[in-house]
């Protein structure tokens, strides 16, 4: 194999770092996309015995959006192993303890069962906010698209925009807003 062929081989199997903005995203839908990139399933060279997965950096995991009543109703089960050691933590409680855990568990469930999970999960880097270590960020060469548009909040509208926004009617002057 010539030097050029060798470099082509390295190039084919190069590990890519993707970045994903989890702001206002459903973690369970996002996990399907992220797990595919971690396993390398999106590559034409994929093979189960071929170690070709990519790294994924997920940031803004504090600002994920769970569908429906999931924050209240989704329970994370844990058992210490001792009698009476069972505990159920609701999603919002878990998110308060650690804002990366809901995302992390969602991706972990999507990965294939078995010991390969540990190696694959090592390629996932979750950060609760916008701060990402510089040494990770400098590896990034690709960004994964968000799965749903980020809605604009009322705070992001300027006073002028609110003023000009079409209204069905004006409140009377003596109307008291609750």
């Amino acid at each position: 194999m010539s030097a050029y062929e060798r470099v082509k081989q390295w190039n084919t199997f190069a590990r890519i770092w993707h970045i994903y903005d989890a702001k206002w995203q459903n973690p369970f839908d996002s996990a399907k996309v992220i797990s595919k990139h971690i396993q390398g399933l999106h590559k034409p060279i994929y093979h189960p015995l071929n170690n070709c997965g990519d790294h994924v950096i997920v940031f803004n995991s504090r600002h994920i959006a769970l569908p429906g009543y999931e924050w209240k109703k989704r329970a994370y089960f844990h058992h210490t192993g001792y009698p009476g050691g069972a505990s159920w933590t609701l999603a919002w409680q878990l998110h308060e303890i650690n804002p990366t855990l809901v995302m992390q568990k969602a991706v972990k469930w999507e990965l294939p069962r078995g010991l390969s999970k540990f190696g694959l999960m090592a390629r996932l880097h979750i950060f609760p906010d916008e701060e990402i270590p510089e040494e990770l960020l400098k590896n990034v060469t690709s960004q994964l698209r968000q799965l749903r548009p980020v809605p604009r909040t009322l705070d992001s509208y300027s006073d002028k925009e609110i003023e000009e926004f079409p209204k069905v009617m004006d409140y009377p002057n003596d109307y008291i807003l609750k």
Partner: peptide, 18 residues
Amino acid sequence: VWSPFANQDTSLNVTSFP
């Protein structure tokens, strides 16, 4: 042979992430 950089937009080389 395919590589992860094949058929990628060249503007990605100069964009800053995120």
